[in-house]
Design a protein around this nucleic acid. Sequence first.
DNA 1: CTGAAAGCGCTTACAG
DNA 2: CTGAAAGCGCTTACAG
Lengths: 331, 331
Amino acid sequence: VTLSAVARQANVSVATVSYVLNGVQLSRIPESTQLRVRDAARELGYVPNASARSLRVGKSQLVIAHLPGGTAMMQRAAAGIEVIGAHLREAGYSLLVHGDTTLRGLAAAKLWSGMRPAAVVTEPGLLDEPSIALLHQVGTVVIMLGQHSTATLPSLVLDDAMFGEVAARHLLERGCRRLVMLMPKHPRARALARSRLSGMRKVIREDKQRQVQLSLVNVSHDPSQLTQIVESWRKSGELPDGVYGFDDVYSGLLLGALLDAGVRVPRELALVGSDDQPLCEILRPRLTSIAQDLTGMRESFAEPLVAAIRGSWTQGFRLVPWAATLKPRDT
Amino acid sequence: VTLSAVARQANVSVATVSYVLNGVQLSRIPESTQLRVRDAARELGYVPNASARSLRVGKSQLVIAHLPGGTAMMQRAAAGIEVIGAHLREAGYSLLVHGDTTLRGLAAAKLWSGMRPAAVVTEPGLLDEPSIALLHQVGTVVIMLGQHSTATLPSLVLDDAMFGEVAARHLLERGCRRLVMLMPKHPRARALARSRLSGMRKVIREDKQRQVQLSLVNVSHDPSQLTQIVESWRKSGELPDGVYGFDDVYSGLLLGALLDAGVRVPRELALVGSDDQPLCEILRPRLTSIAQDLTGMRESFAEPLVAAIRGSWTQGFRLVPWAATLKPRDT
DNA sequence: CTGAAAGCGCTTACAG
DNA sequence: CTGAAAGCGCTTACAG
């Protein structure tokens, strides 16, 4: 069932049907005709052929998110994907996610440029310059999620400083003075960690009289490494009294190592995670964490995203601040 | 840069270019012409317009996976999406994921049928009969992930029995006789749980002389409920000696409740989770779990999927057996 | 062995 | 206010 079938049924031309169904130049078409067209379309169960439309206008309504699963960014995105997806749909786009890491670089760019998507949302490091150039050549907008060296691309940079601020404020309020933040070695997590760290630093800076010191400790997901760290703290007598563990998994791993070493949590050492995963309720002691707050997602993320897709992007990059809320538990 | 641009450059007709680039009737075209065409395409950086192709052949190369994030199915899929995605790509399809739960039913079907995708992969409960009919009408194959009441649809049913088998075998080997399996109340998780349960039952059945009893306990994600369960076990003196917790999260919640009640794990009660999440390493005692083994994914999942997309599907549904491996830890 | 041509289903400038 | 028509970039039966 095509446009012309609807036209025949409604006794008008295909042009009129197209105008009515797309809401173009409606003022010129009398109510009665519009009604006839809409009725016919409904009766026949007409669904416009997106390929034909794309071919004609030279671009599809597709927005492809190139976000390898398991990525920190992807997990954040998963939480907000409903808000973002709904907003994009209202704006006439379809958001689809490509979660396969094995496809990247020119191979990815070729596949997508073939689809002539309105936009590709990607992370720094997945698409190189020639790939981006290819997408631009077919008129696709390339949007970065995170800081990219080429400042010419529209970039939405997640600003996680609030997480660090909430963590630091909580630890200071508990009276902690010798703070540690765990810094993951994994590159993608590290970008987030730096953002969170900046928030911690800010709060500490604003609180000079209290003589707070902050050390950073690089960590991986290897449990034995955390055992070593705790051991070295014990030996040197430099056990911190407050730790921000970056996220719940790192915090949980540290908690395990602390308990193994006989450190009393939170008596000797207070610990805060991030992301408020189910894990927090499961651990003993239960892990105090920080939940992300999706309020404002629409204004701070979805709307700028649509603006970028439409090509009305002014700055090189834009910070997307995230609200964060403390979830106090045992640690 | 279009097909005709390549044709001009190579001094042949568009038909010839199309034949060469698609590998159709190559035997009839001399090597030298083929070379000229391929060189021209490469030089110009030609990328075929998927919309034009789709319009012409009446169908796109898109395979849309309608898998709301956070779903058990989605998490399993995430693990295997690289294998599946790569296989589909080799077969000429593009797998894209739609992770937004708010879109379902007829609204979803309309959006997708507009794209004329080769296939939509969905779960039971997201698309009703009229929605499926609409997709069928435009020639889209609808594939179910999981058991669907309409046996007419090609369905890939994940068979998690191996998880239950591994769990039961492990517990029996430890000498456990009073077994419990936690059964989640959430509908989607429950389908998986039933599959895992069948594996447990099978192992217990094959082991009659040992007089093993198995009870089921319905659970939700509410920690206080698990506390109550442990309490009732204590009171009645019917503490099981081996528990299969369905997955790591439920197992972890139970472990917390057990420790709070002073039950010694694994001395009094052995506990096995599933999925081998990071959580297992974090808990004290560390949680014994069962990892899924992606070996054989290609044959058991990706290949039948492609067969279904191509329309060569014989049975109503097909079991996809998953290999599973015990990850012994403290519990 | 190669090419001219029809046609997929739309949108939109243009003519009436 | 409405319609006839061009054309987007492909594929493919057909003719030579």
